[in-house]
Write a protein that binds this DNA or RNA. Structure first.
Length: 762
DNA sequence: CGCTCATAAT
């Protein structure tokens, strides 16, 4: 027993920082206690060899467990140990002794006990102690409030704060910091402003942590302007202040502003830490700036964060997102240990890569790669989380890999992640993109909670499938549910109207958007309206709209006009639009081929050779046409006139057979026009018989169960010839065929396509 | 009080 004091004091040094952290300056008596511990330690240090291992604390705990009485001075280090070990049972033993020895009179220890229970996630126990306490001070109240904040019960935190105010007590900055956190979690700018008002009214010192909390709150509530104001008013900005401001910019879509803050921070000689660097790297991800990213990478090494895993994860993700596979690979191989975030960043990074560089064929393999990484993850000991499921479902969407998506759906359900609203939305999106509107709406109905994104995803899903009425019905349901639509929701609504030719409704929703919701129309909204007039053959009205809007038309607008002009035979306007399109996208092979096809079919040879010359000058090569089909857990890829795959003979026979049948029903093959030899103008007319998607479809027809839908993904736009041929295929085979090309989803069924034949086809 | 990885479009 005699050795116990020094044993305990070793512990007290170890836990000193925590002790201090817990004890705010307002409690002078408690503070002196910590100092006395410290003093005693220094006296024993010389004759007792310091042993910082936890053995001593463990020993004290085992004594307690045997029922031996020990000095109350041990309680705090012991309780701290329970927090570190996250052990409620240890806390309960100590709690028992505290009651037996009458130490519950000690408010400091009781407050610490509340803290322990809160940190172990047992708020009921913490609340029980709080309710029984004969007296409380503001720290006790703050411990309870902080507990609720950390255990995701911000409503209760606010409630306790209100009770505190009713007692007439004055909250400290610690209390208000916790309350501001609660407001952040509730995304309640109203409550936050009240607290802000309270801080001003009672002239509570606007210290650094308070300012940081306010900045964070305004940022989370989407008010970047107020967040920046709060940041600028922070008297002595520390690393956390800068980091908060920087990530506030990122969270609110102002990545460039965030980088400017970072530069300012460096120029003021504030040293960034690992949190700052990860935040800055995520800004680089948003604007996809590899150059700045590399600089941050070397800065992080100079600052000694070379082996910091979160930073390495961010760097690897950035490199993947910028398509720098070698850099990402190097970054990954330099990791001795990896975390689940590493896995998730790998999957999400490959998913992101799929969206850049559309005609770079190797990049499409990143989808396959992402699926492989997910398989590897499942074979490892790591369990996927909601980030994993959201990312991998997106991969399945992009790959139109329904079978894989279904398996992942089942796995997410089994592991309980389907209840997460983001995973649920990703699932709805996956089924939509795979062309299964039925399963998408089933998944949507089964969601227990829906966000703006869930509703929008389903509305646009209906619109894509040509189910305009259901899309608009769902939009009204969404409004009834009290969810506020945003501009993307209105893109869905307007495109639904456009598809069904509902001019009156479209214009009315356009007004509702502007007046009722205060959303300023952007180019995409005009694109929907113009698309609507174009579909109806009202080309002049469409052109009027283009001239009326406040923007310079972008490539989407011109593409829509071209599609309409070709369908309705107004070639002059079509050529005009195509030339404008070319001015906007001088390097895009698809645009040149589109224009070339238009001039060729009009027999305007002068223009043909003019465009050909431009292509040679710009060094535009042939179109890289590639399609994929995913069957079970394999992905097969196809090139035009590809003969390299198994069953290619049967596939060609099948296509010949279908072609013959189609011709009997009046299909005229308008052979696709492409560039074969850059040097030889005479060979403009391509010898290509089958574009890649036809081969993928034939392969699917041969290998998928009878009646199963065939789903294919293609890297560029389909051509008009394939589009009409596939309509015939859907009739002869009785199958539904889903093709996602670079522009949109085409669902062929019984001779019709969900795009309504108005798409930007080549 | 601050961190990296996730969902919607013509």
């Amino acid at each position: 027993m005699a050795s116990l004091p020094s044993v305990a004091l070793t512990g007290s040094l170890k836990f000193e920082p925590e002790f201090r952290k817990y004890s705010p300056s307002s409690l002078a008596s408690e503070k002196s206690r910590s100092v006395s511990h410290h003093k005693s330690y220094t006296t024993t240090q010389s004759d007792q060899k310091p042993d910082p291992s936890c053995m001593d604390i463990k020993e004290a705990l085992s004594l307690l467990k045997d029922g031996t009485k020990i000095e109350s001075a041990f309680y705090v280090p012991l309780l701290q140990e329970s927090i570190d070990e996250n052990s409620v049972s240890d806390a309960q033993i100590i709690h028992g002794h505290i009651i037996k020895t009458g130490t519950y009179e000690d408010l400091f220890i009781m407050t610490f006990l509340i803290n322990v229970y809160a940190k172990c996630g047992t708020m009921e126990a913490a609340r029980k102690i709080f309710d029984k306490l004969p007296r409380r001070n503001v720290v006790t109240w703050t411990a309870l409030i902080t507990g609720y904040v950390h255990n995701s019960q911000p409503e209760l935190a606010i409630l306790v704060f209100q009770e505190l105010l009713e007692t007439g007590a004055y909250p400290t900055n610690y209390t208000l910091g916790a309350v501001l956190s609660a407001c952040s979690s509730l995304y309640s700018i109203e409550l936050g402003k009240q607290v802000h008002g309270y801080i001003i009214k009672y002239q509570i010192e606007y210290d650094t942590s308070m300012g940081n909390s306010l900045c964070s709150l305004y940022s989370k509530c989407g008010n970047l302007e107020s967040a920046v104001k709060a940041f600028k008013r922070v008297p002595e900005k520390n690393t956390i202040s800068w980091t908060t401001a920087i990530s506030a910019c990122g969270d609110n879509g102002q990545a460039e502003m965030g980088l400017r803050f970072f530069v300012e921070m460096l120029s003021e000689d504030t040293r960034p830490n690992e949190f700052t660097l990860t935040s800055v790297l995520s800004l680089c991800c948003i604007i996809q700036t590899l150059g700045v990213g590399k600089q941050i990478h070397s800065l992080s090494i100079r600052l000694g964060y070379e082996s910091n895993l979160p930073i390495k994860n961010s760097i690897m993700y950035l490199y993947l997102k910028c398509g720098w596979i070698d850099g990402a690979q190097k970054s990954l191989s330099g990791m001795k240990t990896v975390s689940l975030v590493t896995w998730n960043a790998l999957i999400a990074g490959h998913a992101q890569m799929m969206n850049c560089a559309k005609d770079d064929i190797p990049v499409r393999h990143s989808g396959t790669e992402a699926l492989n990484i997910f398989l590897k993850l499942n074979r490892s000991n790591t369990k996927p989380d909601l980030f994993t499921f959201s990312s991998i479902l997106t991969v399945c969407s992009n790959m139109v890999a329904l079978e894989q998506g279904e398996q992942i759906h089942a796995q997410a359900m089994k592991t309980g992640f389907l209840s997460d609203v983001v995973v649920g939305s990703a699932l709805v999106n996956m089924y939509n993109k795979c062309g299964s509107i039925e399963r998408a709406s089933k998944a949507f109905v089964e969601m227990s909670k829906r966000t703006l994104i869930s509703w929008t995803s389903m509305i646009t899903g209906f619109a894509q499938h040509g189910r305009s009425y259901q899309a608009l019905q769902l939009f009204e349901d969404m409004r009834l549910a009290g969810v506020r639509p945003n501009k993307i929701t209105f893109v869905g609504v307007l495109s639904a109207c456009s598809h069904a030719g509902m001019v009156k409704e479209a214009l009315s929703y356009f007004e509702i958007m502007k007046n009722e919701y205060g959303i300023n129309p952007v180019m995409d909204h005009y694109a929907c309206l113009i698309d609507m007039f174009v579909r109806l053959g009202r080309l002049d009205e469409a052109f009027d709209f283009i001239q009326k809007m406040d923007f310079e038309p972008n490539e989407v607008i011109w593409s829509i006009l071209i599609a309409g002009c070709r369908s309705h035979g107004n070639m002059e306007l079509g050529f005009y639009a195509a030339e404008r399109l070319l001015e906007l996208k001088p390097k895009d092979a698809e645009t040149y081929v589109l224009l070339l096809n238009m001039y060729l079919s009009a027999g305007r040879w002068k223009d043909v050779s003019r465009v050909r010359k431009m292509m040679r000058d710009e060094k535009i090569g042939r179109l890289k046409d590639c399609s994929w089909i995913s069957i079970k857990d394999k992905v097969y890829s196809f090139l035009p006139d590809d003969k390299s795959f198994a069953q290619s003979e049967q596939a060609y026979d099948l296509l010949e057979d279908l072609l013959a049948k189609a011709k009997n029903l009046g299909y005229v093959s308008k052979r696709s026009l492409e560039i074969v030899d850059e040097e030889d103008d005479e060979k403009i007319i391509s010898s290509i018989v089958h574009h890649s998607e036809r081969l993928a479809i034939a392969f699917g027809l041969l290998n998928m169960p009878k009646g199963a839908h065939v789903r294919v993904i293609k890297n560029i736009s389909m051509c008009r010839d394939c589009h009409s041929f596939i309509k015939f295929i859907s009739v002869f085979t009785g199958r539904k065929i889903v093709i996602r090309d670079s522009k949109r989803l085409h669902k062929f069924s019984n001779g019709h396509c969900s795009c309504g034949d108005f798409s930007n086809l080549l």
